[in-house]
Design a protein around this nucleic acid. Sequence first.
DNA 1: AAGCTAATGTTTAGCTTGTCAACATTAAAA
DNA 2: TTTTAATGTTGACAAGCTAAACATTAGCTT
Lengths: 199, 199
Amino acid sequence: MKKKSYHHGNLEEALIKVGMKEAKATGSRNLGVTHLAKLVDVTPMAVYRHFPSGENLKAAISQQAREELARRMASAVAKETDVKRKFMATGREYIRFGLAEPGLFSVAFLDCSELPNREDNPSARGILHDTILDLCNEGLIEPKEVQAVAHFAWSIVHGFTMLAGSEDPYRPSARPGDIEDVLERAWLGVTQYSRDSKK
Amino acid sequence: MKKKSYHHGNLEEALIKVGMKEAKATGSRNLGVTHLAKLVDVTPMAVYRHFPSGENLKAAISQQAREELARRMASAVAKETDVKRKFMATGREYIRFGLAEPGLFSVAFLDCSELPNREDNPSARGILHDTILDLCNEGLIEPKEVQAVAHFAWSIVHGFTMLAGSEDPYRPSARPGDIEDVLERAWLGVTQYSRDSKK
DNA sequence: AAGCTAATGTTTAGCTTGTCAACATTAAAA
DNA sequence: TTTTAATGTTGACAAGCTAAACATTAGCTT
């Protein structure tokens, strides 16, 4: 039997934790106040002592999911030294995470317009940005391109992950070779570009 | 005053129509059975004579949104003859639509894993695919690359649109110049690629 | 250590939704 | 015209979110 102390100890943390578990299993479907409260063996109203509303709780879980993604990317990129390999590893891990943990990924980028508390997204974008900065230091791209390149690379891996993970009958396949193909093409868009190739 | 004939005439169509209007205005927030039924001045239960469940109604609206996107892309690409311009126009219109109609776009790609009835997605992907086939006919890419190129291009425009339309504080900006930049880089990834550039 | 106070949970209850079952109305077929 | 199938409505119930009022306890204050 469980100890039923009136106070839970650290409910906020527990809610996010169990929320992550649910997200991993079923995406955003079971992230409601009532459901999560039940899993932590607490009254739904207790949740409101820690989050202004259910949406805020979801936002907190979403944030956590984004940080998980960032951790994995950081870990993957840390194993590489060559700039190109770093670039590839960053994108590859983003895609891998999205496909290996579709629930977490969908929660991480849960229709942002409806979620509050989106101040800090240090995570994935930050790591990607660092990788691009390295490209700049190596002289592979110009300083003023950094921003555009980061957005370009992010768009590719994000789009590919979303589509490959969708139920669309014509979605991209995600065999390792196909992923490498996409990353290789992204690399070209990054390095082969110059202002002159415009128009 | 309104005529209150017991039968509505064409409720199914009316529901999807008003659903599109709501989607355009507020995304997926107000696409519930009760709300839409109210807007058409009908009892919630009437909806179930036309859709097995609320999710199916949402799916129908989502499909409609996807077709709207496809129509605009078809219209945009029809104005061009040059293959590169066709390619650019296709992607540009995809992005424009997503940013001009964020509500519709988010509903169009509403977390697919939770929606039924996703058999046919003829639309956007089909048009993009035709554009890529043209590239092939012009000898700009090899036939066996068509699939990969289509997925690559789709990933970029989809990812860029999602991110630029998000609330992320570091989201890509979507000024016309930035959009052209992304499309130009995508073009490089499409045309500069060869099996040899691997590894 | 006794007592106050704020933090944290609970109970109760109201409102909104989605959906089942049973019934009502009407358009279309026989 | 009568039967029948399609289409809407009413009523009811469960589930979810959350406001208000009340209960318990952790921790500081003295």
